[in-house]
């Protein structure tokens, strides 16, 4: 089982990203669940979502405490949340940033400027750059699911073609 924890802020689309990730994995013939942790928080508060991908049906409902990977959609949550909490040794980090970042050496760090991509693609809703479709492209590059399944998961959720082009741009930008 591969367990992913997504850190974002309310309204940034972390929950939808989790659903599209699980959906893409299922399209690859895997089993997956996506599970947002709901609180009473409103727009802007730090939130976490969980994705589990496995070869057998997933029977676990509790939160992910020892993730294989963490996805940081909004680096500013790191000011208040210990995003690395429980991350397995040798685990992966994907972070949305345009800056240099430093994490402990035992982790594999990947990054892309999803916000910049969203702005370039004019993927902005109500003033906020959309991050949940570009991140699918980035994670496809990291091999969580196939590129085709990622595109399908996006197009099933969003009709606007800017979403898939942003995902493609993110796919290209991530260096593996």
């Amino acid at each position: 089982m591969y367990e992913i924890r997504i850190h974002s802020r309310g309204g940034q689309g972390g929950v939808t990203a989790a659903r599209m990730m699980a959906s893409a994995a299922v399209k690859d013939g895997k089993f997956a669940t996506a599970c947002p942790f709901y609180g009473a928080e409103r727009r802007g508060a730090p939130i976490v979502s969980f994705v589990r991908i496995d070869d057998a049906p997933v029977r676990i409902y509790s939160q992910i405490n020892k993730p294989d990977m963490i996805v940081i959609l909004d680096p500013t949550v790191m000011d208040t949340v210990n995003v690395l909490d429980g991350l397995k040794e040798g685990g992966s980090i994907f972070i949305n940033t345009h800056e240099e970042v430093s994490f402990p050496k035992e982790f594999n760090v990947y990054k892309a400027d999803l916000t910049g991509i969203a702005l370039r693609e004019n993927l902005v809703v109500a003033g906020s750059p959309i991050l949940n479709t570009p991140v699918i492209g980035a994670l496809a590059k990291l091999g969580l699911f196939s590129r085709e399944s990622g595109v399908k998961a996006i197009t099933e959720t969003f009709a606007d073609p800017r979403n898939t082009s942003a995902a493609r741009a993110a796919y290209e930008e991530v260096i593996v």
């Binding site: 989790a18 659903r19 699980a22 959906s23 299922v26 089993f31 997956a32 669940t33 996506a34 599970c35 947002p36 942790f37 709901y38 997933v58 409902y61």
Partner: peptide, 12 residues
């Protein structure tokens, strides 16, 4: 069905 744990989880 369990609130959030099942009502809001996404499964195939």
């Amino acid at each position: 069905m369990d609130g959030f744990l099942l009502s809001h989880i996404m499964q195939p």
